[in-house]
Design a protein around this nucleic acid. Structure first.
Length: 543
DNA sequence: TGCAAGTTGTAGAT
DNA sequence: ATCTACAACTTGCA
């Protein structure tokens, strides 16, 4: 089924496209183009559809389609711009890439690294495969998925350790300054293009099919990414971008009308360079009076991304509950818990706001950031008390913009496992949505069964009188589920469970501090004093 | 050791 | 529209 890899006679400079599906601001690609021209070697741009890659292994149809579109777009722009034909392969990268080399002198493999720990392992598997075949290929890696190399950020971090708070990380950013300016594409002439390449595999060739045709709101590709960026940055001549404040954007928008950029799928696939976007937005924030809240600015959205990626690269087991940042929380692992998780997963919790958000994700692969907050809080600490790992896995499967570190970090945040501590601040599955969308248009759009429910009951249809349910053609418990939990009850229980978990975590910290070493280290002193500090505060309050 | 701050809650009162 | 109680956490810095 997989087309055989073509073999080439002369020495080859291969640029392996991974999560850098663009020509603009692409350091790795530029290095390959330059080298090919200097050495008069054959320039081979390559992409491998590999269902075992960590970005693909759990991916459902929508992200596969986005990826496929992005690769198709890349092939077209490579033809047009550097007159090179993209070699598109299907299979495991470590199996198919070595076949591109014929052991000629001067063979090179260039790529932009995938910074996820699993991505790094994947690189190594390719390098190992080359060695195993006795191929002497010079491997040249570049950074580019994030704005900075991690070492640069760690050097500017207190104690050489990535800060755990945003304010700490903003300090690091101030020390390192703006990211490098975007680099223009190296346009080399005389690159060979008369190569036989295997045919471009379709999604169905690769066995990837959709259950039902899902709408395309965000087609993949660099051109579309740049178009979207320019469109957003030109709104009110740049004032919208400069004054952007994340918490003031609505999670209840859908269809063509959105008030966030929706550039994340393009950043995740590298159709858009994060450095390019940052520099462009920064210019506008300097030009106009920007949003005074630095943490909610548009540039800071990229700083969050950078912060979480740095943590994702430096903290072991970042994607699971066992990592050192995660508080030990006794999530529900019973059969009943699994059933509640399934109800969340299948959009039948009985809370229309939650089920509508979940449906949006399932169908379109994108949900507004605050909508993700609602979904994540409901599944974990707010209502269902299920582990964040389960939710993170669903997001991994369905989000167009799935990015290893960002997904784990945000789930840890929302579940109060790490970073965020105000566990008593819970999103209401009723009030939060209503704040943005009083009439419930969002719910009516994604859950047509509720489209005739009166405004008064749209967020809590189970409170509608029977006659209203009949008139609205939606009987609760028959046409639409009754709520699986009573939010007002479980939220109180969960806050108290979380309080206990926090107390236990603080105690454990103290205990391990006492037993681990004979001498009292700085860290122990700190943890002890903070625990004592919390106690005295509590006493003072009671007085 | 103490204190300020923490991207984005809710419900009810004014 | 703005304020307050809710119940009170952790981290970072002086």
């Amino acid at each position: 089924m997989a087309p055989s890899t073509p073999a080439y006679a002369s020495s080859a400079v291969v640029h392996w496209f991974r999560r850098d599906l663009r020509l603009h601001d692409n350091w790795a690609l530029n290095a390959a183009l330059k080298s090919a021209a200097t050495r008069k070697a054959r320039f081979l741009p390559v992409f491998v559809f590999d269902s075992t890659a960590h970005t693909c292994v759990n991916s459902k149809f929508n992200r596969w389609r986005f990826l496929h579109q992005s690769v198709e777009a890349l092939r077209a722009s490579l033809r047009k711009t550097v007159n090179a034909e993209l070699v598109v392969l299907h299979g495991r990268a470590c199996d198919v890439l070595p076949d591109l080399f014929k052991d000629a002198e001067g063979d090179e493999l260039h790529f932009e690294i995938d910074p996820a720990p699993v991505g790094v392992k994947y690189d190594q598997a390719v390098i190992d495969a080359l060695t195993k075949k006795g191929l002497e290929v010079e491997v040249k890696k570049s950074e580019g998925h994030t704005m900075y190399e991690p070492t640069k950020l760690l050097l500017a971090s207190p104690g050489g350790v990535a800060p755990k708070t945003m304010s700490g990380f903003i300090g690091v950013m101030e020390r390192v300054g703006n990211p490098s300016a975007p680099v223009p594409l190296v346009r080399e002439r005389g690159l060979s293009h008369d190569v036989e390449v295997p045919s471009f595999p379709s999604l169905s060739d690769m066995g990837i099919t959709d259950v039902e045709e899902s709408p395309i709101f965000f087609p993949g590709g660099e051109e579309e990414a740049l178009r979207r960026m320019e469109e957003f940055l030109s709104r009110e001549k740049g004032r919208i971008a400069a004054k952007f404040s994340k918490p003031k954007t609505s999670p209840a928008t859908f269809g063509q009308k959105r008030d966030t950029t929706i550039l994340s799928p393009y950043l995740a696939h590298g159709c858009l360079s994060s450095r390019t976007l940052y520099i462009r937005v920064d210019q506008l924030e300097r030009k106009f009076k920007p949003n005074p809240m630095i943490q909610t600015r548009l540039t800071c959205q990229l700083i969050w991304r950078e912060h979480f990626w740095l943590l994702g690269r430096t903290v072991r087991d970042f994607e699971n509950e066992q990592n050192e940042l995660c508080r030990d929380i006794p999530w529900d692992r019973t059969k009943e818990g699994e059933k509640r998780f399934e109800a969340w997963r299948d959009a039948r919790t009985g809370y229309p706001w939650i089920d509508a958000l979940r449906t949006q994700l399932m169908k379109e692969g994108f949900v507004h950031h605050l909508g993700r907050h609602s979904l994540a809080c409901f599944l974990t600490r707010g209502d269902l008390w299920c582990s964040w790992e389960k939710g993170a896995r669903v997001f991994d499967e369905e989000l167009l913009d799935y990015d290893f570190s960002l997904n784990s970090a945000n789930w840890m945040w929302l579940s109060c496992s790490a970073f965020f501590n105000a566990y008593f601040r819970c999103y209401s599955p009723v009030a939060f949505g209503r704040k943005w969308d009083k009439k419930g248009d969002f719910i009516r759009h994604y859950l047509p069964v509720l489209k005739d429910m009166p405004e008064k009951y749209i967020y809590e249809p189970w409170t509608a009188p029977k006659a209203t349910q009949v008139a609205g053609k939606c009987i609760i418990g028959k046409d639409y589920p009754a709520p699986i939990v009573d939010h007002s009850v479980v939220v109180k229980e969960n806050i108290s469970k979380m309080r206990d978990a926090f107390k236990r975590a603080a105690q454990n910290k103290q205990k391990t501090g006492d037993s681990s070493k004979k001498a009292c280290t700085k860290t122990e002193k700190r943890s002890r004093s903070s625990a004592n500090g919390a106690d005295t505060k509590g006493k003072r309050r009671k007085r």
